[in-house]
Design a protein around this nucleic acid. Structure first.
Lengths: 150, 150
DNA sequence: TAAAAACTACCCACTTTTACCCACTTATTG
DNA sequence: CAATAAGTGGGTAAAAGTGGGTAGTTTTTA
């Protein structure tokens, strides 16, 4: 499977395009077909899934019973902001205006490899996100792995 | 199979026509034959099924026990408002007046890709729908996947 | 049942957005 | 330190979205 890591600060051009870092492109599977699905992140950022990873997310929906109101709500939330994006000749994708607005992205972006997805942040918003964390990395790390630190 | 995603705000013209977004048209299968079946949604909106997907819905009805009054009621509701619609030369379909009235659609529509169907909403009604949700996306998501959050 | 009204299918036309190309500068790399 | 790749910027033809005319059909109504 695809696995992204690292972080990069790139520019957004006047047409809303960003380059996908070469080091991340190298981790794309052939079956992703140079295609991505771009959607709204849980925090104020944009999630960029390679197509093969996105299809795993979408596969879950097919199993849902669309006569259940909660299942319809979930389907709508997941799909409402999702947009296809293909790499152009210069290895860039276009960020939808709506998502740029949501993530408060203007001229620069902080691009973060996050395992199965690529995240695109306004660099300042990412700083705020880090500052807003209640607990530090080591504390959270130990909780995540159900161990007590110290 | 067809799989629609994304959302768009388009206009309804004086003849009751709406454009089917190009990004959704790309996901139509050849067997849908540029044809749709338009019917009443569960919420105040219009469901637009590509023809091939509609046939699956009809197949499900075929399995219902028509001696059961509730099954008969469900069958009637689904079929009563169903209308065929074909793309015209400009990739538009006509929304039946009855359904436009049901969904309170006037000048603008919010078009939402919802996996196997396209939904057409009055933009304000969609906002109301979202505001009316008891639980947020993350909570519902975790319930849908039968996990407890936090 | 004939005239009027409404609806539909098929055009054409216009504006805005997008896809695709070319070009330049800055980093990497053998 | 040349040669290639990576990152950035922009022009332009094609596609997408919107609006409306008209002729033929169906529906309504006097």
């Amino acid at each position: 499977m695809s696995s992204f890591k690292g972080s990069f600060t790139y520019t957004v051009d006047s047409k809303g395009r960003i380059n996908i870092p070469a080091k991340m492109r190298k981790n794309l599977l052939p079956e992703a077909n140079n295609s991505f699905v771009v959607t709204r992140g849980f925090e104020p950022c944009i999630f960029v899934y390679p197509y093969d990873e996105w299809m795993k997310r979408e596969g879950e929906i097919g199993k849902l019973q669309q006569t259940d109101p909660q299942h319809r709500f979930f389907t709508r939330m997941l799909l409402q902001f999702a947009t296809d994006a293909e790499l152009d000749g210069q290895s860039r994708i276009i960020l939808p205006k709506e998502l740029m607005h949501y993530a408060k992205i203007e001229n620069d972006v902080f691009i973060l490899g996050a395992f199965d997805r690529i995240e695109v942040w306004n660099p300042d918003e990412y700083k705020k996100y880090l500052d807003g964390q209640q607990e530090d990395y080591l504390t959270v790390a130990s909780k995540v792995f159900e161990k007590k630190v110290d």
